[in-house]
């Protein structure tokens, strides 16, 4: 009998700390699978900033650095410049990449740093208890928008990927989701391409992944996936952005 499915070498054999139905575990695994398939486990370096995934190093079996909230791309820029032979990627949430770290995001992209960015967009701050994120939808209720996000008061969902696509230093941007198995496979393909771009020296590549947060959306895991399909991906259309 052939073994057809097993844990990637780049993924540690540990139990998860994420909430039921959370998308982080899926993306952690996809990254580990891609790292194995590209045979880069021994030269990849991850940068995990503050957010639910700050302890991503508990799951990945390769070198990892913490980063302060919003500073992942400053840390990653330096690591890659110092060690150009390594494959450096950041794993950032929407609050990290699109609020407190917007400056680092735009400038690392604009410098055309040869980096890979995995951007988890779940439209809320998870680690701190479900507050409004820059990507929170109009009308969406969060811990800090109890009546729903009001454009008059809190502005609009920020589409960072579309913004970054304007910059000449950016080579690849793809928005995917985790709403179905098919979408998960597309996400893996996008992650692989973003890593391959770096290996080929092409420059800044980013994959934005619409990821479920059932806990702070107040939905069951299954309903959360439906909400991505029916609502979230309407505001953040899937596909190749650049």
């Amino acid at each position: 009998m052939n073994k057809v499915y097993s844990r990637p070498k780049a993924l540690k054999d540990v139990s998860t700390h994420y909430c039921p139905g959370c998308g982080h575990g899926i993306v952690h695994r996809l990254i580990a699978e891609v790292v194995d398939e590209l045979s880069i486990r021994e030269r990849v370096i991850a940068v995990a900033p503050v957010g639910c995934a700050v302890i991503a190093y508990d799951y990945w079996a390769f070198d990892c650095s913490e980063a302060a909230h919003g500073r992942a791309l400053a840390v990653a820029t330096a690591i890659k410049r110092v060690r150009p032979e390594t494959i450096v990627f950041t794993y950032q949430g929407d609050g990290d990449l699109a609020a407190i770290g917007t400056n680092e995001t735009i400038h690392a992209a604009n410098r055309g740093e040869n980096l890979t960015v995995i951007f988890i967009n779940n439209a809320v701050y998870g680690m701190t208890g479900g507050q409004m994120a820059p990507t929170t939808l109009i009308g969406q209720k969060t811990a800090t928008t109890p009546l729903g996000r009001d454009a008059q008061l809190q502005g609009y969902p920020l589409k960072v990927s579309e913004l970054l696509a304007q910059l000449p230093g950016v080579k690849y941007i793809q928005r995917t989701s985790l709403q179905s198995v098919q979408d998960i496979l597309k996400t893996k393909q996008a992650i692989k391409e973003a890593f391959q771009n770096q290996m080929n020296g092409l420059g800044f590549s980013l994959v934005e992944i619409l990821s479920p947060c059932p806990t702070y959306w107040g939905l069951s895991p299954l309903k959360a996936l439906e909400w991505i399909k029916d609502v979230l991906s309407k505001e953040f259309p899937l596909g190749r952005i650049k």
Partner: peptide, 18 residues
């Protein structure tokens, strides 16, 4: 760097890389 914050965090990254 684009800011003082980015500069000190680049130093963090460079030092982490040795």
């Amino acid at each position: 760097a684009e800011s003082e914050l980015a500069a000190i965090n680049m130093v963090f990254g460079a030092s982490a890389a040795g």
